[in-house]
């Protein structure tokens, strides 16, 4: 059989065109069937016209103030429907104990969810000669150069214009490359039993700095419930925001600065050995 080049191109072009039409058919049908923004969940305060470019959020975590009550962990889990088990956390609290020998011990019983008052380590720590001890709240750093976004093979995780890293859970394929790439352990895959707002399971979830709250002018849930002001949230574009104020007054540090991720959670009262 002989096929001329002309025929070849004609057949090929026809095939490609057919493919494009077939490929977009479901989307077209969908648009015809549901005009408007039907995919947005109904909420009391719907953000109609977001002004993403006007904000750039920042976060302060004060290790000199944190008392390790773990109420932030509880609030986060309830606000964001994070699974209650200890392996799934958008935020958690670590306790550092540095002995006079220079040894550093760290624990985070149930991710700090139940506080540290009854932690089993308390009695072990009793017999140590403690040089100093403090709590470190942890959450997603919403890096300016997020390695998790770089590695996502399908672009399901992305940075918003106001600087928050989100996951499109309806797009995420669950490869968990981003979990591996996050130097801070801030990501996890939702288990089969998870009942989250988007109703997706076996996809990756992470801290959003309570994106739905900050867009409505509220504080993230962990900041709202912190009793001692160890968590401070604000707009870095606003010179009067509490974050800007603390950044003016205090010397701050970020976690693992050597990795070049440019975290936006600034730590007050930093100590060597906190990763």
């Amino acid at each position: 059989m002989k096929i001329s080049r002309r025929d070849f191109i004609k057949t090929g072009a026809g095939g490609v065109l057919g493919g494009v039409v077939a490929y977009s058919l479901p989307s077209i049908l969908r648009i015809l069937a549901q005009p408007g923004n039907a995919e947005l969940p109904v909420s009391a305060a719907v953000i109609g016209e977001p002004q993403w470019e006007k904000h750039h959020w920042g976060f302060i975590a004060d290790t000199e103030k944190c008392i390790g009550c773990g109420r932030c962990v509880v609030a986060c889990k309830q606000e964001n429907k994070v699974p209650w088990d200890e392996e799934y956390n958008r935020t958690w609290v670590e306790r550092y104990v540095i002995t006079e020998d220079g040894e550093t011990l760290v624990d985070s019983p149930n991710a700090g969810r139940d506080g540290f008052a009854e932690a089993t380590k308390n009695s072990e720590y009793q017999n140590l000669e403690i040089r100093k001890s403090f709590f470190v709240p942890k959450l997603c750093n919403q890096c300016e150069q997020p390695p998790c976004v770089t590695v996502c093979p399908v672009g399901a995780t992305y940075r918003t214009k106001d600087g928050v890293v989100l996951v499109n859970q309806e797009h995420c394929i669950g490869c968990r490359y981003c979990v591996q790439a996050c130097p801070y352990g801030a990501r996890y895959m939702l288990p089969d039993a998870a009942q989250t707002h988007f109703g997706q399971v076996r996809v990756v979830d992470k801290c959003t700095w309570c994106y739905h709250r900050i867009q409505k002018g509220l504080l993230p849930a962990c900041v709202e419930v912190c009793p001692v002001g160890a968590r401070v949230f604000g707009d870095m574009r606003d010179p009067e925001s509490p974050v800007r104020k603390i950044l003016r007054e205090k010397r701050v540090y970020v976690l693992k600065p050597d990795l070049g991720t440019e975290p936006k959670v600034y730590y007050v009262g930093f100590e060597k050995g906190v990763h």
Partner: peptide, 18 residues
């Protein structure tokens, strides 16, 4: 994959930085 039914997205919506 967590969601094998979405595996083809890796061809169709690739993030070429990854």
């Amino acid at each position: 994959l967590g969601r094998p039914e979405r595996a083809l997205e890796i061809f169709l919506t690739p993030n070429l930085n990854s």
